[in-house]
Design a protein around this nucleic acid. Sequence first.
DNA 1: GTCCTTGTCTACCAAATGGTAGACAGACCT
DNA 2: AGGTCTGTCTACCATTTGGTAGACAAGGAC
Lengths: 195, 195
Amino acid sequence: MADTTAERILEEAMTAFGTRGYEATSLDDLAGEIGIRKQTILYWFPSKDALLEAVVDRCADEVTYRLVRGLDGASDGFGRVDAMVRAMFRLAARHPAILGVLREVARLGPPSSTRLLARIEPLIERASAFLQAEMDAGRMQHHEPRLLLLAAYSMVTGMATEVDVLRAFGEEPTLPSLLRRRDELLSLLRAALEP
Amino acid sequence: MADTTAERILEEAMTAFGTRGYEATSLDDLAGEIGIRKQTILYWFPSKDALLEAVVDRCADEVTYRLVRGLDGASDGFGRVDAMVRAMFRLAARHPAILGVLREVARLGPPSSTRLLARIEPLIERASAFLQAEMDAGRMQHHEPRLLLLAAYSMVTGMATEVDVLRAFGEEPTLPSLLRRRDELLSLLRAALEP
DNA sequence: GTCCTTGTCTACCAAATGGTAGACAGACCT
DNA sequence: AGGTCTGTCTACCATTTGGTAGACAAGGAC
């Protein structure tokens, strides 16, 4: 990764937007961190908005890739939910900024949020259908599938991104702590979902 | 409310910071919405940062007030959790921007996040102790209390604030939808917590 | 009436920011 | 060698933004 200039810009922008935020990241700062000039960024991406769009697309691809692997897992019932949650936390551990971008984009609202969600919606649809089928087959307790997904999404992004809040709740942003949070979330979901 | 100028500024700033975000709200815009000049804002609050601090304090007071009422409720076991969740959703329905401020402050990081969390930490401590006691008494399933609180917090703020995400999950930002989300969240928590 | 305080406003300002115009150096083709 | 294309840079620019200085009007205090 990061061999071409455009790639380096994209990577660094994802980190910056996902941690500091979009408005709080100036093109000058971003260029400085990469070791180039702002105009080089504007050569590869015609505007800051366009850069954000590229970051959103990259981010959507990454999340899709992870989640599809979770959805394609062999297990049934809660096992697949387990696999998806683990996939997301693995993503959070390896590239924390990505979940930050999700949250940032949701905060910024349209048009970037529209763009991101349009790309992810098929996944929501698939996951929702899977949950519904499992519930109907009696392998899971009955809940509203989409709202269940929404709750799970909120918990994952919350427990993976809000460092200061975590600190107030007695959790440090370390890997062991992240794993503990993951296991606690899985334990909650298991209690709520397994028959 | 909103009789004195300072009060009007505070109220409008809370709405703006909680919905559009801190950096995205300029003092000129804010003043325009109130119908005054920027310099009047700077007369009452020496700087934009100071205004944010005031908003944070006001927000912490509001949340504390609501949660304390939930914690002081008469019921035991899950009944009290139920009361607290309902209290937060009532807050979300009446003054949606407040939960937005919570999220925004968590995103901005120190020093505002430190300030907010210092004011709310006693509540976390109390709620945590309550949950632990209920679990020890066998009136709730065992979970890590602080992580459980963190999960609940994430779900409440997520399900109450992320309008665009909600829309992707098939929920409109209307009151009936909000109530449905609240009930779904309660149903999840009940399944995970009741013995 | 005079003075002081309070609250709001007009007039500016320095810094930062996204973006444009164009110079320039190297690679590549012919 | 000469011309062209690509990628990066220097030099600017217009606008926005948080903040300062100070004028000015209203209202008490005496």
